[in-house]
Design a protein around this nucleic acid. Sequence first.
DNA 1: GCCAACGTTGGC
DNA 2: GCCAACGTTGGC
Length: 139
Amino acid sequence: MSFWLFKSEPSTWSWEDQVAKGDAGEEWDGVRNYQARNFMREMKVGERGFFYHSQKERAVVGTVEVIAEAHPDSKTDDPRWECVDIKAVQAAKRPVTLDQIKDDPRLSEMVLVKNSRLSVQPVTEAEWRLICDLAGLDP
DNA sequence: GCCAACGTTGGC
DNA sequence: GCCAACGTTGGC
């Protein structure tokens, strides 16, 4: 069981947009980065991830679940790009901000901190539990 | 709005 | 296969 983090600009695709899709979920399309794509290829149905808002907000705002494994990105004809489908699971009672994450030595090794530009990234189980705890989310 | 960091592209 | 140029991302 692996844990993940999906990053999105709320002006493009927000947590609210994701919630509005309900259990049907939505493709995590638009990824044009090999590292991010490769992580999506590793994802299994049922695995969980954080939904992170970049740009102005910069916070973990909820959890999502993978509901379909990697398949071709319907938004492009380029066969290189694939994506998974995810659905919203639970909104954070207290969004965990990037500042909080950076200030916590237990979270200093997060990819979010180390490689801020990667839009799909793995999260360790320890990081998962800690952020869930801070956010008031069920792990 | 700026800029650093990083990934990709294309010429050689 | 290297590397300069360029484009994009995202934090500040």
